[in-house]
């Protein structure tokens, strides 16, 4: 697999789990949009940048999984900080369980295979 193919595969894998990762990071500590992008990067998740994360964050807000709170700052601009709602925590718990079950199934499927099968 070339690095490009590897990157594309990583993006595809992340696509289905990005909202869960965002929710998990926000449940640890509320953040504004750009800060969340940075945290995703720090966690090693190449989420596609702000252009992907911010619209997704907006959808999560529409679905009631996160809510925003405006924080006025005397020294800087006001900030809209996103935090997970009770419904968001509940959904995160369900997603986490689903993910763990999925990973277990996938691990069991790919275990003990030598990679090609053309021996």
């Amino acid at each position: 697999m070339t690095p490009v193919e590897g990157g594309e595969r990583q993006t595809q894998l992340l696509r289905g789990a990005l909202d869960m990762c965002m929710l998990a990071l926000l449940s640890k500590e509320p953040a504004h949009g750009y800060e969340l992008v940075r945290r995703l990067d720090e966690a090693g998740l190449d989420a596609g940048g702000y252009g992907t994360v911010y619209p997704l964050l907006t959808r999560m807000r529409r679905l009631g999984l996160v809510e925003d709170e405006v924080q006025e700052s005397p020294s800087g601009p006001r900030r809209k900080v996103y935090k997970v709602t009770p419904a968001g925590h509940h959904r995160l718990g369900a997603w986490r369980q689903q993910w763990q079950s999925f990973v277990t199934t996938v691990n069991a499927t790919i275990a003990d295979t030598s990679g090609g099968g053309h021996e």
Binding site: H32, Y34, G49, Y50, G51, Y54, P55, V70, P77, K80
Partner: peptide, 27 residues
């Protein structure tokens, strides 16, 4: 909302163009 978020990023030294690239309409 977008302005607030871009402003927050700018105070940390990240320009709007760095965040969104050139395809603002697509975003």
């Amino acid at each position: 909302d977008l302005r607030d978020d871009l402003t927050s990023a700018a105070t940390e030294g990240v320009a709007a163009t760095e965040l969104l690239g050139t395809d603002v309409r697509g975003f």
